[in-house]
Write a protein that binds this DNA or RNA. Structure first.
Lengths: 214, 214, 214, 214
DNA sequence: TATGAATGAGGGTTCATTCAT
DNA sequence: CATGAATGAACCCTCATTCAT
């Protein structure tokens, strides 16, 4: 039945997201996923054709949900001041990747895919990362002003986003160095403030010394 | 014979570093590694006992070589000015993780271990990352001065190091967005300048704003 | 399908019984068994989980079949004279362990398990050997009468059963000393008579000498 | 050196006897044996050529020692009365196979070889078992007298020896049924008496009823 | 649509043995 | 005489996948 099918498909997607996130693609077995989803062992090949195609569908699934849950605009209108936009961008980025409640597996799957890219990464870059970075570049440009070179804006944007990604890929090290860090809601707020402050100081300082003579 | 033994062991370590870096632990097979090292399929178990212990030895091996090749002091004396120390720290960090010629596999193995930690991560944190971070904190403190809170120094240090790590875990995405980026020697120099400038501006700005009243 | 499943399972059990009987547990390989059963090499792990669990199931299987084929009562009623019961006991015992046609592998598997016990022996002792010996003790007691000590009855029962077991574990030696001995149906009849006669003479003689004064 | 060689050879033989006895041929590894003997892992192939030849040498070694330690004459002269000879035969037989102190591994190795015969069994039959059985036949004949058929003497001899062998191959079952049985020196004496008594009664009874008319 | 059974390829590991020293 | 290193075959087992129903 249609309903049953969709239900099985969805349960498999959810289960696979968690299993792939926890163990990685290679170390995840279809048995683990099927057991987690409480479906038959042949269901994956039946519904998705192969483990590989399931993985692709999982990435599409979690990506779509992540951006639905935390849009990049973060409730701001286009006329909001740049520094508020920067803060909103950083905050929504951190929420997307750390809210395991609403986006289970998303952050981990993304960082795994970046570290060990598959053909799915192209899709992710094209459908999300690319426009996300463009948006950030626009915000940074509006903060630094029009008198700095584009290359500098790019570099600064990378430095800005790097501070967010860092907490994703260094999570294991950070939790070893500072065990009290849990990346819960309160932590996200604090991190947002710290990263925003650091970035704003850097952007303003760079803009001052690198202003191109008109 | 000692020489022969060490030769096989070493060839296995080198081959395993490349294979583990390229495919990850789970997707790497002992057959692949032995083929790459051109040794018998039972050699790994003979010399290391198991695939798992080989992996641990590989991490120890590449870590030691990385720090021997690019020490954190980077040729500077203790009396060098702080901003030069920061530049040296960033530069040596980038060189360590991107010089595939001299440190083959190191960067990729590190980021893999961070994203998918095994028991080997404890060793890495204790024997290297911990003191490395402390060193950076010292440099950042000397730049920001003694009138800022320790928590701010930590946050700023994380923001500084994050810009270096970023290029490790986002390599695949960056090369898709800017294909001309190859992380060769010239790129490393440029990245060093950009990250150092961004960080120095941020530290100086933060220090000014957050100075604690004496 | 039920039929198909049971068919593969059963073919594996039959094949494994023969292979384990011929080569012993350690020297038997799953490949040999699967080849003999003409099933895929992964079938054992699918149906039984492991070589070890297959072995346990094989012992259960052949034991059950052996006692179904040749019950200890051997068609006698409870009121049969003791010496006939003894004869029946010995005859059915020998048939069970030597009828390779109907109980393939049973005798050899039993003696192997006794010589090199695994955890399966506990099962065999509890589910079969124990009650079998008790039954024999009852017969011996009824022959020797109530005026002999229980310890003597036990010893005599052991001596009785030992003559049957002997042909199991000394088969290879006997066939070297008397090659005409094939343990076929005719031999079984003869052996039954010889063992019964020897035992009856011993029991009667012992009973006479060891009668406890009332 | 000669001495060292013989020492290594002997240590290997002793160690192998224990290991083969405990685990059987297939489940014993050359590593286990070499570790037990505290010699190099290649020593077996060096001194014996292969695991298989080592096994043969072990059997020869323990067999020779067993018969040196407990000769079949058991200190009796040729003129001793037949029933004393029978008792001595049974006693020395039991001692040979159960005195782990002086004949470590012998009994277990013998029963293993009988249950799972290799080419070594031919040697054992030719060099020992054959003459041993002949000797027993002689004793039984002298007890039963000359008026019984030879076939009956053979059968009775088998029944006699079977009671000794039984304790070897049923050790594991017996220790499960009667845990207090340890087959120590005291037990051997008791067993000797029980088996001798049972056998003498049987022989005398059989001789009486089966006497051939002259 | 969905499933339990079955498959062939390949996994890491262990084995007895051989080789060079 | 003796050994540590190295080998190729085979071990049991697990995998993603396919088949028959």
């Amino acid at each position: 039945m249609e309903t049953q099918t969709n239900d099985t498909r969805l349960r498999l997607l959810e289960a696979a997201a968690l299993v792939f996130a926890r163990h990685g693609y290679a170390a995840s077995t279809v048995r683990m996923i099927c057991a987690q989803a409480k479906v038959n062992g042949a269901a994956i090949n039946y519904h998705f054709g192969s483990k590989d195609e399931l993985y692709h569908e999982v990435l599409r699934h979690v990506r779509r949900r992540a951006y639905d849950t935390y849009p990049t605009t973060h409730g701001l209108t286009a006329v909001a001041p740049p520094h508020e936009k920067l803060r909103a961008f950083i905050n929504s980025f951190l929420l997307r990747i750390f809210d395991e409640e609403r986006n289970p597996g998303f952050g981990t799957l993304m960082i795994r895919e970046m570290v060990e890219p598959t053909s799915a990464l192209d899709m992710l870059v094209e459908e999300g990362i690319c426009s996300l970075f463009s948006e950030l570049v626009g915000i940074v440009r509006s903060i630094m002003g029009n008198n700095v070179e584009q290359e500098l804006v790019y570099a600064a944007s990378r430095s800005a986003i790097s501070q967010c990604v860092f907490f994703l890929c260094s999570r294991s090290v950070i939790s070893r160095l500072s065990p009290q860090q849990t990346f819960g809601p309160g932590d996200i707020e604090l991190l947002t403030e710290q990263i925003t402050a650091f970035t704003l100081c850097a952007l303003n300082g760079l803009a001052k010394v690198n202003r191109v003579r008109p």
